[in-house]
Design a protein around this nucleic acid. Structure first.
Lengths: 195, 195
DNA sequence: AGATGTACTGTACATTTGTCCAGCTTTCGT
DNA sequence: ACGAAAGCTGGACAAATGTACAGTACATCT
């Protein structure tokens, strides 16, 4: 047997633990992740988390990879469908996307955000985070480009940047009803002002 | 003596501990704050932190208040000076402001950001965070308004929102040279596209 | 059926953390 | 000079946490 990895097999147990990790992160933040808390949330024995993952850091790292894969896949799917028929529908599509991610029980948007911040903090996870940022923004830019630009001198990159910025700003200081109460109006005003 | 507060007097020791807390937060995040780590950073005996602050939560809470007061005062000062002479100088002024906050040894921008996120997470600190957001955005909007709008149909609020969003987006995934390498170009492109 | 190896888990243990308190030092009134 | 009160600190302690390991259950093969 190679010495590199202990060779833990993939199993549904393992997947369940990873998803429990995301739920814990969403509820109590990244620092709320402990082996015992995750095990309790996943409904597995306490030692199971240390069995399937070499360390707590490895657990968080895999959770980040999982979130990256899922969220980029989701955005890509939205970008590849029928393009939005104009700026107004673009906002609708974006809000739909955000709502989907917020409601996702397995990788809620709050957990994504926490993990992204954590990735920015840890040297080791930086490359992952930057890859995510690149892919995510590319997909988002494609979605924006598909909608057509409200003004020709505007590039899709700029608009996508502005929209992502609005979303991040809302996520940074989370409020109840941040989507319909704050995010959507802000995006509407932005697009209106540019039309 | 009233029973409400233990009545710890203000002292330079106390202030030093608070500032050490901000430095720890900037370097290791809010969850890196421990009594011992803060005491070491401040160069005071281990028990000093528990002496001057009732609990770790109280320490973080006061650090947040300190950051709020300082950063709003700083932005206000910038907004009240000579208004920027047009959109291009507006970007310069904003970048100056960010650079000042990043370089601030007593309340680095990273610490501000961490604290704001923490405030959003803890029910108890929410009001503080919302007050901060309101005051901060008002000052920023005033600064933007003073510069004059690149297009009349644009409101200062929208532009300020967009700029703050760009900043938050860059802070979320910190990189080396994020100011001149990413933030300034993004702001320039935004203003250009609107001109 | 028995042996054997893999998958898994209960538990112990060292470390770190927040908190408390008994006592030391300094200050200040007399 | 002396005593008392306030300011301060070393050290102790319980709780929580990451990790390692010895043992158990279970499957697979002969």
């Amino acid at each position: 047997m190679p010495v590199t990895t202990p060779g833990k097999r993939s199993s549904s147990r393992r997947a369940g633990i990873l998803e429990a990790t995301l739920r814990v992160i969403a509820g109590r933040g990244v620092d709320g992740v402990t082996h015992r808390a995750v095990a309790l949330e996943a409904g597995v024995p306490a030692a199971a988390t240390t069995y399937y993952f070499d360390s707590k850091e490895a657990l968080v790292e895999e959770a980040l990879e999982l979130v990256i894969d899922r969220s980029t896949a989701l955005v890509r799917r939205h970008a590849e469908g029928a393009p939005p028929a104009g700026p107004a529908e673009l906002v609708d599509r974006l809000v739909d996307l955000v709502e989907l991610q917020v409601a996702d029980r397995e990788a809620p948007l709050a957990a994504q955000y926490e993990l992204m911040l954590e990735a920015g903090r840890r040297q080791r996870l930086r490359p992952l985070a930057e890859r995510w940022e690149t892919t995510y923004m590319a997909a988002l830019t494609a979605l924006v480009a598909g909608a057509g630009l409200p003004r020709p001198q505007l590039s899709a990159e700029i608009l996508a940047d502005a929209m992502e910025g609005a979303l991040l700003g809302q996520l940074a200081l989370p409020r109840d009803d941040f989507i319909d109460g704050h995010l959507r109006p802000q995006l509407d005003r932005l697009v209106d002002a540019l039309a």
